[in-house]
């Protein structure tokens, strides 16, 4: 099967939570959370390695009651690529063209909301976001430790959350 036409969604290392009209995905490998809007989520859902880009566009179109161009699906695939949500990276159809140019072209022609993936990094450390706790007493000097705001060091040079 031609990989460039049959995208396959990644499943390993992901935690998925569906919410109304969106899908949240947490990537355990990159420690990033992603929010896929309805269009991006629907494209991702049909990235099963057996459904072609053209077919995904057709499914999307029939669910929205509107014609959907393949380019809209490719735009979603580009973003899925970017956020490592596909099993293997796919060649971008829009290589060499700016995102703005592509968005303008597809956006003007489409009645369906453009695919959008927003991301946020989660703190890795158990304590990191909870406090600016120092690994060692004395490590924190007048807020010089990353994450320690000025004034958060105690007189004995421990970092006070």
């Amino acid at each position: 099967m031609n990989n460039t036409q049959y995208p396959l969604a990644r499943t390993n290392g992901l935690v998925v939570q569906e919410v109304p009209n969106e899908v949240l995905v947490f990537d355990m490998e990159t420690n990033e959370a992603h929010c896929l809007n309805e269009t991006a989520a629907m494209v991702w859902k049909y990235c099963d390695g057996e459904t072609s880009v053209a077919k995904i566009a057709e499914i999307l179109g029939s669910s929205k009651g509107s014609d959907v161009n393949d380019d809209l699906v490719w735009l979603a695939i580009d973003q899925l690529n970017e956020h490592k949500l596909l099993e293997s990276r796919m060649e971008s159809k829009f290589a060499g063209r700016s995102r703005r140019e592509v968005l303008r072209k597809i956006g003007l022609a489409s009645m369906v909301a453009l695919p959008l993936i927003a991301s946020m990094a989660a703190p890795r450390s158990v304590m990191a976001q909870a406090s600016c706790t120092c690994a060692n007493n004395g490590a924190c000097r007048n807020g010089s430790l990353p994450g320690c705001p000025t004034g958060s060091c105690s007189p004995s040079n421990v970092c006070v959350p």
Binding site: V19, L24, F26, N31, A33, C35, L36, A122, P123, A128
Partner: peptide, 15 residues
Amino acid sequence: GSGILESVPEVIPFS
């Protein structure tokens, strides 16, 4: 979804 995403950096610990 956006609200949950925005809160990710504030959850202890998300991962």
